[in-house]
Simulated scan of single mutants.
Amino acid sequence: MRVLVVEDDPVHAKAAVRVVGPLGHDIIEAGDGEEAVRLLRSQPVDLVVLDWLLPRMSGFEVLYWIRRNLGDVPAVLFLTNKVLDDDIVLAMEAGADDYLVKPFRVGELTARVNALLRRVTHDLERTDHIRAGDYTLDPLGRTVALRGERIDLTPKEFDLTALFFNNLGKLLSRKVVSISTWGRELDPASRTLDTHVYRVRQKLALAPENGLRLSAVYTHGYRLEEVPSKSPRSAVSDQNVLPCN
């Protein structure tokens, strides 16, 4: 399998390569975020070992680009000096598969690389389609269908929808949603995020009768979750969902 090591510090890069190389995988290296994206555009990669603090384009921006343009593969392992719990949570919620703090132990990095590559192999054997409720999301074709009928979405609306479908049942903070979809944290006074969430909810007809519910959790964020299907009449009387406005 192919592993991309993205690290601007030659010492740390060499250390990571020394661990991954003997595992029998092909290794390519990038010294900054922009070079990493160029390589990812030009050739398939199964795992990215990624530093956060990179020149030109941060590791978090590279992660955002990967998840928006390539989907769930490659797997992404952050290997970084950032140790705050908030940083780790932010990275994992935005799509990182694992997180390891420098300096790392050789045995631990070896185990985590092997585990992620086993997961990638398993995922590649499964269908790419995501099914939830009465919906089917095709990440490669960038389409969503409700009971087989395709729903027209703008590119940004699809990105937002894919984020929710890939994190079904999870509470996603406004910060994570905005960074994952727009690549930056939006101004708290802006209504851009709320407007896009509202449009996605309306276009997809997200409601219990279709098996999914998109809830706004006040001051926190949003959660897309599966619910038992209901008839349209009974769904009207359901007062437990805080609508996304």
Rank of each mutant, 00 (worst) to 15 (best):
5 V>Y: 07
6 V>M: 03
11 V>G: 11
14 K>G: 13
16 A>D: 02
24 G>A: 00
25 H>D: 12
28 I>P: 09
28 I>S: 14
31 G>P: 09
32 D>N: 15
32 D>Y: 02
35 E>P: 10
36 A>Y: 08
50 L>K: 06
53 L>G: 13
58 S>R: 07
60 F>S: 10
62 V>C: 08
67 R>C: 01
79 L>C: 04
81 N>S: 14
82 K>P: 07
84 L>T: 14
88 I>W: 05
93 E>K: 15
97 D>Q: 10
98 D>L: 10
100 L>I: 03
104 F>K: 06
107 G>F: 08
114 N>Q: 13
116 L>Q: 11
118 R>H: 12
118 R>S: 09
126 R>K: 13
133 G>R: 00
136 T>Y: 06
139 P>A: 02
139 P>L: 03
144 V>D: 12
150 R>S: 09
155 P>H: 08
165 F>H: 00
176 V>D: 10
177 V>N: 05
181 T>E: 02
184 R>C: 13
194 D>G: 11
194 D>S: 14
199 R>V: 12
206 L>K: 00
207 A>Y: 03
213 R>G: 06
219 T>V: 11
221 G>A: 07
221 G>Y: 07
222 Y>D: 01
227 V>N: 01
233 R>S: 15
234 S>K: 09
234 S>D: 12
236 V>N: 04
240 N>K: 15
244 C>S: 13
